Simulated assay, not measured.
Amino acid sequence: MSLQLIENVIAIDGPAGSGKSTLARMIAHKLGFHYLDSGAFYRALTFAIWEKFLETKDDESKFPFYTEKLADATLLEKDEAEFGFSVAKIPVHCELSSQGENLMFLGTRDISHEIRDPEITKKIRYIAPKRAFREILNRHIREFAKTHKLVMDGRDIGTEVFPKSKFKFFLTASVEVRAKRRYDELVAKGFKADLNHIKEEIVARDESDTTRTVAPLKQASDAFLIDTSTLDTETVLNTILSKVSPSGQI
């Protein structure tokens, strides 16, 4: 990407429960942009590396060690020599359906459903924290942005993935409000939920996200801060649209 400010990517960061995913989808729909699920890229790469690991016939308990060594080799560009494949050359890419849904492919193979397997969910933690893998996926995402107008949400979109985005927002809310939102969401889906337990989980997640070594959660210096604790979704949506442009269009 060039050093000029990027106008075709709207970056929304924030902690769990701040409302960023809901708002990102609404903004994309309102502006005619595409919502890009960055997490799907991590799932796809995890799936691809897991398949490579299975080819070794090694015990599954060794996967964490395998990913550590692979990440080190990838940083030194020795992965192809040592592992028989280059992570950077794994053909993971995203295509958009006619409804704008994110479809993930491994070469010509649609793996959109397979990457949602609970086993893949468990293994993402061995891939996502590794800088070598994050840099490769960020390149994929930036390449995708060259031909699409995107709204993305996450924890490092405005600081790491698109630091030159002209439109950056950081959403936050009190722990109590975020916990209550999660509680209401679970109850509405028919699940039993404990509000105090959810609050403890959110506090722990915040600590993990803000203190991790690679791409920690933090507000970009030029991001617009919105505390959603006492604001309804429509108010936050209109606030963001007004910052993008007075007319709500780019």
Rank of each mutant, 00 (worst) to 15 (best):
G107Q: 05
F83W: 07
M104S: 11
S112M: 08
L137T: 09
E77A: 14
G107L: 01
K122N: 14
K123V: 02
G107T: 04
E101F: 04
R131Q: 12
E114T: 01
G84W: 06
R116P: 04
G84R: 03
E119S: 11
M104A: 12
S98N: 14
R116N: 14
E80C: 10
D117C: 01
F133V: 00
T74S: 11
D72Y: 07
A128N: 07
D117T: 00
L96M: 14
D79F: 06
Y126D: 09
L75C: 04
I90G: 08
E114G: 00
I124C: 02
L76V: 08
R131M: 12
F85D: 09
G107H: 01
P129L: 05
G100L: 09
H93W: 02
A128R: 05
I90T: 14
V92S: 11
E114I: 00
L76M: 14
I136P: 04
R116C: 06
F133I: 04
S86V: 05
T74R: 00
K122L: 13
F85V: 07
G107I: 00
A128K: 05
F83A: 01
I111M: 06
R116S: 11
K78S: 10
L96G: 08
F105L: 08
K130C: 13
I90C: 07
N102T: 06
F105M: 06
G100C: 12
P129M: 02
L106I: 12
M104R: 08
E80G: 03
A88Y: 11
L76F: 12
F133T: 00
P118S: 15
E119C: 12
L96I: 10
R134L: 04
F133M: 05
F85M: 11
L75A: 07
D79R: 03
C94D: 08
L106Y: 15
T121W: 01
K78N: 14
T74H: 00
R134M: 05
E119K: 10
F105I: 01
N102P: 07
F133E: 00
E101S: 15
C94N: 14
L76H: 12
H93Q: 12
I90L: 15
I124Q: 06
A73G: 13
A88I: 10
R131V: 09
R134S: 04
R134G: 05
H113Q: 15
T74G: 03
A132V: 04
L96E: 11
F105A: 04
I124M: 08
E119D: 14
H113I: 14
T108I: 12
H113N: 13
E82Y: 02
S86T: 02
F83C: 07
E101W: 00
D79K: 03
R116D: 11
K130Y: 03
I115Y: 02
A128P: 00
R109Y: 09
D79H: 02
H113K: 14
V87D: 06
M104W: 05
K123I: 00
N102E: 07
K89R: 15
D110I: 03
A128C: 04
K89Y: 02
V92G: 13
L75E: 15
L75F: 01
I90V: 15
I115E: 04
G84D: 02
D110H: 05
A81S: 13
